[in-house]
Amino acid sequence: MNGFIVGMYLPGDSFVHQLDPRAKLGFAFIFMFMVFFADRLLACAIFLAFVLVAIHIAKVPYRLFFTALKPIIFIILLSSLLHLWMTKGGEMILAFPGITIYEEGIRQAGIISIRLLLLVAIASLLTFTTSPVDLTDGMESLLSPLRKIGVPAHELALMMSIALRFIPTLWEETEKIRKAQMARGIDFEEGHILKRLKKHLPILIPLFISAFRRAEDLALAMEARCYRGSEGRTKWRQLHYTRRDLWLLLILILLGMVLLIFRH
């Protein structure tokens, strides 16, 4: 599973690991929301500092965050370049024929990259420190008040759990099919990008067929184990808030104050 890091959980017993998953999920959600209001470089820097400290406390190696960032580095670069070119205001810093770069442009580029970075970092920190079981339990519990207005909280959580359960299986299967098709003479490294995409059809079609077959088997097995939706169902794992979780509330208030103080 080379380089497969999305949704990965790193078992541990740090302060962050021991937080209640609902508290973490709620925190991450509000934090992401707040990131969009952090429109001052200083506020962004404070947020970033907070995340770096949190990573340190969680004892997650920093290099794993770089691996998690890899897939979106292109997006970060592109959006900061766009801001660099398009934003006007403040002093003129550089002037080339065709483009001029203003002070405000640099600021905006900085803000947008830090924002994206924060989003990825907080989401990865959540999955690195929360087991898939806790994650789905937390989600189900947070969503359950919405059941009254018709949100299928249990079904959503179960879907997520099954998805997390089968990611490694399907990943392995992809590798196997890829090799089998290579043995039939496909060279995945050759050709331009469109041609290469088309070459992946012989992988994708068998993968889909297999995923459907698995889904059918799984549905049958679940039915045989008396599954009939959320009705009359109990939960084995009971979540409990502790005093630790109050810290997250405090941090949220502090970060909110930062936003207010450095308001535009």
Binding site: K176, I177, K179, A180, Q181, A183, L201, P202, I205, P206, I209, S210
Partner: peptide, 11 residues
């Protein structure tokens, strides 16, 4: 090379 369950690679 014919892998295990080769019918799973038909497409």
């Amino acid at each position: 090379i014919v892998f295990q369950y080769p019918e799973h690679q038909l497409f």
